[in-house]
């Protein structure tokens, strides 16, 4: 058996794959946080709850309506996105003139409510969600065995991340969005409907969280608590990357996921802590974050 640093290559690559999968979710979620924060100046604490909501929508669609994975892949983000739009219109839009901390506190309350509701009806234990038949099984890559669904998640998250990046950096809508981030009043004066842009942005960010949720459903179990544990790690990722750039959020997400996987190989006890330790080191060396602009 081939060894790398005294560890069987299979185990090594296996953990690296787990790290890559986790990194995919970190990237998708921190991307959504960055998109929302960029325009709304709101840290969306409910992002984890919306991710959980996405997974639950998929689970409920399957359980009660018999709607499978592929339609759910469209429907779950759509439903979570609409939910986000309603929240933004009813509540968040009233908080823009205040200290950004109020946005954080409001979405924190929202997260508690969402989590509480699902916990009340579905308990704390996870509900399994089957891998779609098309992606069941695995492929032998010669050097390791790759479950097909996990490969699909990595590909899908890359598509989502770079799709969002392209939408914001390369399209006309994206240029409005970036302009409104710099100076919303000026953009409004040019005749762009900035409030609508804000609403759509929050909807898009929520939908991204919902999409991550339904992608995660077959890997992690669908549980009410799946979001809150993840969101705190994602916050650390955001602190490391800085929220100045979309690309920065993506790169940091994948890198930290991989770092976590590597730690699991060499020193499993610390794998929970490694992202936070990296955050602390980055704060010492580059307080603004690796890609941050606001030093």
């Amino acid at each position: 058996m081939t060894m790398i640093f005294g560890i069987p290559v299979q185990a090594f690559l296996g953990q690296l794959l787990v790290g890559l999968i986790n990194g995919s979710f970190y990237a998708m979620l921190s991307l959504g946080l960055a998109v929302i924060f960029g325009l709304l100046r709101v840290i969306n604490f409910a992002h984890g709850a919306q991710y959980m909501l996405g997974a639950f929508v998929g689970y409920l669609l399957l359980t009660y309506l018999g709607i499978g994975y592929w339609p759910a892949l469209i429907l779950a983000p759509l439903i979570v996105g609409v939910f986000g739009i309603v929240v933004e219109r009813l509540a968040l839009s009233r908080l823009y003139d205040l200290d950004p901390l109020y946005g954080l506190l409001f979405t924190f309350g929202l997260a508690l409510v969402l989590e509480g509701i699902f916990r009340y009806y579905y308990g704390v234990s996870g509900n399994p969600y089957a891998v779609p038949p098309l992606l069941a099984g695995g492929t032998n890559l010669g050097f390791m065995f790759l479950p097909n669904y996990r490969g699909w998640v990595v590909v899908a998250s890359l598509i989502v991340c770079f799709g969002t990046w392209a939408l914001i950096e390369k399209t006309r809508l994206g240029s409005y969005l970036r302009a409104a981030t710099e100076n919303p009043h000026l953009v409004q004066a040019f005749g762009v409907n900035v409030p609508l842009l804000l609403t759509l942005t929050y909807g898009l960010g929520s939908a991204l969280a919902g999409l991550a949720g339904i992608l995660a459903a077959p890997i992690y179990q669908v549980s009410p608590l799946m979001g809150s544990d993840l969101i705190i790690v994602v916050f650390a990722v955001v602190v490391v990357g800085g929220m100045g750039s979309i690309l920065g959020a993506i790169v940091t997400g994948y890198t930290l996921g991989l770092a976590e996987g590597l730690t699991k190989v060499f020193y499993p006890e610390a794998s929970n802590l490694v992202v936070f330790v990296i955050m602390a080191i980055v704060l010492l060396v580059r307080p603004a974050g690796l890609f941050g602009r606001d030093a």
Binding site: L101, L104, L273, F276, L283
Partner: peptide, 24 residues
């Protein structure tokens, strides 16, 4: 660590560090 950033980042850093203490 936390006073190196302000506002929203301060909140996130304290949250992350306290989660680290929780895992500890």
């Amino acid at each position: 660590f936390a006073i190196r950033r302000q506002g929203i980042y301060f909140a996130m850093i304290t949250l992350a560090l306290s989660q680290m203490f929780f895992f500890f």
